[in-house]
Every structure is written in C-alpha cells, then in structure tokens.
Design a protein around this nucleic acid. Structure first.
Lengths: 81, 81
DNA sequence: ATAAAAAGTGTCCGATCTGGGATTTTTTGC
DNA sequence: GCAAAAAATCCCAGATCGGACACTTTTTAT
C-alpha cells in the first residue's frame, strides 16, 4: 500500500512524522541512531520546529521510508508513477 | 497532464524550485517580495543549500503554488532493531 | 552594435538561532 | 514501584537570514 499526505507547514510535518514513527514502533533514540541526526533534532522537529534544516529533514525522511514530492496546485493526484 | 516530482535531497529541491520559478516567469526579487523571505534565501535555496530552514521553504512553496506531499511506500521497517 | 536595464552572484555585518552532547526532570508503560 | 522513554535544560562553536552594497553577466531596446 502507498499513501500520500499533503503537508502545509512545519507543524503538520512534525505531527505526521510523529505518527509515522509510532506506526513503525520506533523510539526517538532509535531514529536518531539510525539516521545521522541527534535526538534533540527529532524531538524538536516532531514538535513543529519551523527552523529545522532541510538537509537533516531529508535524512529523517529516508530513515522513515518516506518520499517527498512536490505537486503543482490543482494536480494533487499526480504523484503516481 | 499531471506533474509529479520526487525530491531526494536539497540539491534536487533547489533545481526544481528554479525550474518552477522560470516556468512562472518570476524573478528571485519578485518571489522574495511576495513571500516573506529575502533574496539571498531564494538564491541560496535554489543552489541547494542543505541548511535552509523548513518554515521559509514552506513560504516559498506557497508562493510558487506548490504542494509538499509525503508518500510512504511499503512498510519501511526493515532496519528496525 | 551599443547602451541601458535587469538579473544573478558574492561579501560584510549583526542579532539570533542551530544542533549535538550531556544532564536532569517528567511522563509513560508494564 | 520501577525502568524506559520522552521532554526539558545548559553549553557553545558555528551557521542562519536579511539588508545593503558592489560587481558581473544576461537581456532588452534603439
């Protein structure tokens, strides 16, 4: 199964990442050890930190098995390969 | 026609944003005036700056009419301890 | 072809903030 | 009750971002 979620702001990003981590039954510590980020970063990102750096976010997305897609407004169904 | 772009890292993000800005025939200055970011930020982001902050990136995406989607494929827990 | 305008790039300054590590406190779960 | 997880604090070297200015390249117009 493949799911897509539209993320509008840092707050929603954090909430989604938290939910996804829970689904995978991982702790912040496990995530931060597998990916190259600190536990504090995971903590703050999940809380919606707007100043988190994009490079670190990509590392975390990879660790969680998530892909980032950009879709032009009005073409929200276009991510399908 | 629908358009989807998978973005894997800051470099690809910058390249895509540059291309989209060109499609819209906007200048860096115009973008930075409509959104709440500086011209230098636009410049550096388009060059692939990995330390750009996510909150500002969301502002830019809105300005360009782009949506950010997170897509999950499978159950990416193969590495789970 | 030439000149002018626009776009892009780079650098300086400064207030503010990052993110990792370590430690401590609070919450959660069994 | 107890241990693990999560959250909250410090410290601090280093980086961000915006604004301003100077310079170069590209585009546009005559």
């Amino acid at each position: 199964m493949t799911t897509s979620s539209k993320i509008n702001n840092p707050k929603e990003l954090g909430q989604y990442l938290l939910e996804e981590r829970k689904r995978l039954k991982l702790t912040q510590k496990e995530i931060s050890e597998y990916t190259d980020v600190g536990r504090k970063f995971v903590l703050e990102l999940e809380k919606g930190k707007p100043t988190a750096q994009i490079g670190k976010i990509f590392e975390l997305l990879n660790g969680l098995g998530l892909e980032l897609h950009l879709i032009k407004r009005g073409e929200a169904d276009s991510w399908k390969p």
